[in-house]
Nucleic acid binder design. Structure first.
Lengths: 106, 106
DNA sequence: AGATTACATCAATAAATCTTGATAGGCAAG
DNA sequence: CTTGCCTATCAAGATTTATTGATGTAATCT
């Protein structure tokens, strides 16, 4: 059975922002610290921090503290969940259009 | 090269709502008319119509008019775009953390 | 033609999300 | 211990997105 619609939606929601996509693109090459991300994206610190938080809450990244730096890493399993959700939605059946509602069809 | 972050985000945005996910789940079994979707989801008509519109604008579904009924179908290519975008983001490299910014590291 | 059905669209409101600037906390260096 | 750096969090406002109820439109039926 598929994951609940709400949790699938929440996962995709985290992917539904251009800046978060850019962050993920940077992290795809490996772990990065916040200061580097800030520089690469030329973005305000609190803004970046907010997006990192939403990525983290969605499980797409994890963070790690080292001294005064924070490092973020992609979390592979979340991407696998997203892939599964996607393929569960992909068209898989007949093209037929058969109305079943009787409110509008009888 | 990857699709622009903004268009990737827009695609995922269409997937970022529980009701839209449910609609797509229903459509995964094949084309359906709006009246059937309404009944299966027990949802107000204008609300459903709105979500169908955003799915359509994202390219995830297409519609077809037949008499007074509208039929919606999944659009496979959009799902392929989404899959590509996802796999472009998946972790693919070293775990190393190397700071490159010199604003914060020198 | 008039009535009804199926759906889209609009306007108003509500709710969620994002941005910005300010403040606060942890850590390290001096 | 004080200062400065890196990051998180907060509060306020702006923007976007979603819901609701009403109206519009096109097709069908009588």
């Amino acid at each position: 059975m598929p994951a609940p619609a709400a949790s699938t939606a929440a996962l995709f929601h985290a992917l539904a922002d251009p800046m978060r996509i850019e962050v993920l693109e940077l992290l795809a090459n490996g772990e990065r610290c916040v200061c580097d991300l800030m520089e690469d994206l030329s973005v305000a610190q609190s803004r970046l921090s907010w997006h990192l938080k939403t990525l983290k809450e969605a499980g797409l990244v994890t963070d790690r503290r080292e001294g005064r730096w924070s490092y973020y890493t992609l979390e592979r399993t979340a991407f696998e969940r997203a892939e599964k959700a996607l393929s569960a939605l992909k068209p898989r059946a007949r093209r037929l259009a058969i109305r079943t509602a009787d409110a509008c069809c009888e």
